[in-house]
Every structure is written in C-alpha cells, then in structure tokens.
Nucleic acid binder design. Structure first.
Lengths: 136, 136
DNA sequence: GCGTGATTACTCGGATACAAGATGTCCGAGTTTGAGCGG
DNA sequence: CCGCTCAAACTCGGACATCTTGTATCCGAGTAATCACGC
C-alpha cells in the first residue's frame, strides 16, 4: 500500500509545467533530468497523462509535452487516477454479497481522501510556488 | 496502490472475533476456513495483530486466538497500521528539502483518510452486525 | 533564392529485463489438553 | 482413585516457492524542423 514513484514523477512534472511553462513544449529529456529519471521511462508515464487528456505531445524536433487548454482545473486526483487507475483501493472479494460492512467503511475512507485531492488544483499550488519562489 | 489481501483477512477476522466471540479462543483453522485461506498464512497475519497487542494466542490443544481485554477501542486504522505498517503512503524522495509542496498535500490527504479510519471502531461495526444479522 | 533531399532531434510503442513485495506452502519445534494405564 | 506417560491437537516461526507489479532499459519506427546542396 504505497503510491508509486510514477505518481510522484507525474505530479512533479505537472506542477512544473503549470508553474513554469503553461504554453511551451518541453522535451522529455529536460523534464527527466530535473527528476533524475530516464527519459524513456518518464515518457511512458506522460503517455498516460496524454491519454487522460491533460497534456499533449508533439513529436519531431523541438517537440515535447505541453499542457492542454483546459489545464486550470486539473486536480491531484485527476493525475493520480490517470497513473494509478480508478479502481477502488480495497476490494473484499468474498461472497458476502455486495454489502460487506468492511468494504463500505473502506470505500468511505477512500472517498474522504479523494474529495480532498479533488479540491487541490495544480494551478493553486503553482501560484504558491511562484509567490514563495520555492524550487521545484 | 492497493490495500493488501492480508489487510482484508485481518479486518474480517477481527470483526468476527469482536462480533461473535469476544472472550473465547478460536482456532486458526476455523478462522481460515471462513475466508478460504490456508491456516498457516492466516496465522502469519494474525501474528502481526498479536505483536500489535490486539489479540493474544494460546498454543496447545484448544488453543487459538482471542481478543485482548482492551478490544473495545480497536479502530480500523489500528488494524491497517498493524498489517501495512505506519509509513507514509507517499514519499517524495527528491532533495527539494523537506518542504515539498506535493508531499505536503499528499500527507494531508492521507490524514483525511486516517482520521476517518481512526474513528471507526470495530465494536461499533459489530453492533450493526448483530442488529441486522448480516452474515460475516 | 528556392525546392528537394538528407540529417538531426525528437517522441511513440512494444518487447524485455530486473527487483521487490505480496501471497502462499512446508516443515520442525514447542505447548497444552486429555486419555490411558499402572499402582 | 491418583499420578505418570504418551499421543493428539494445536500454534509458532523460519525457510522456501511463486506470482504479480512496479521500475527501468533498449531499440526500431515515425515525425517534424533544419540544414545543405544543386539548379
């Protein structure tokens, strides 16, 4: 039970894009270098974000990744779901029927976390970054 | 990012003990049979709960597991922590210094879930079970 | 100067390798209960 | 009826096998910009 490193990479990449370059194409190499990951691996992760519609990629020289138009509303939850999938964190696959009390509690708990993450927008965070000049 | 099956087994076992037999020793075989797990594997899981001080084991004939005296206050979180460990779900192990904004958000989100789970006591759930006669 | 082709700098996607953790099994050792047996 | 021994039922813990998943690399293919060259 841990968030994967891939999620960490995705979150940091998105925060960087939102805070530093909302409209420019940034090459995977540059993005990977900041986080000490191999470019090919990061590319795999970012492909998921592309499929989720948050960013778009341009191939060829001077290519790279760029935010899509509607990036203002992207939340932490969006990114996490894109990387980790949307499946429930807990499944009681016994045959108690669908109303396993434990399952209900766990799903509730998960919802608590998710609503928090849903309300945390990347753009809010980016504003904080700019104000306090924190390095990414 | 998923809760392990072991957590599921642990939660169900605890709920069963609290709801059905708060003071008797129950053999691992019987507990394992209910959940279609091998007894040796379940025993490994329950050992963790023993070390966490929630239940105690008695060896020998008619042995088994039994709740400890102070079982009234056991929460979901206690059990989950005993099985999954108490480490944070997310760690940004870059060298941004300790105040990585993303890390802060994720820890906050985790706290949301944990406080919910901390307030869900097993004994509350057991009461519901008895009232509604739901099968475990 | 202008089109055309080659080169370069990129991303994309599949195949593959590797490591770690979750899951599950096996077996020997220790422990308690209870039955059997002899005095 | 009492006490001793022994077998049975049980848990404990370590060692091991297996499976899945996360992490990462490699490479061939495709694509867009740019450069070079010939007309």
């Amino acid at each position: 039970m841990k968030f994967s490193k891939a999620t960490n990479y995705a979150l940091h990449t998105m925060l960087f894009l939102v805070a530093a370059a909302p409209d420019k194409h940034i090459g995977v190499q540059q993005l990977a270098e900041r986080q000490s990951v191999s470019p090919t691996y990061l590319s795999k992760i970012l492909t998921k974000l592309v499929k989720a519609g948050m960013i778009e990629s341009a191939s060829g020289a001077n290519g790279g990744y760029r935010l899509k138009r509607s990036w203002e509303d992207i939340s932490f939850l969006d990114i996490i779901h894109a990387i980790e999938g949307t499946a429930s964190l807990f499944d009681c696959d016994f045959n108690h029927g669908p109303d396993c009390l434990i399952q209900l509690v766990m799903v509730e708990a998960e919802d608590e976390m998710e609503t928090y993450l849903k309300n945390k927008k990347m753009s809010d965070l980016a504003r904080t970054v700019k104000l306090s000049k924190i390095s990414l």
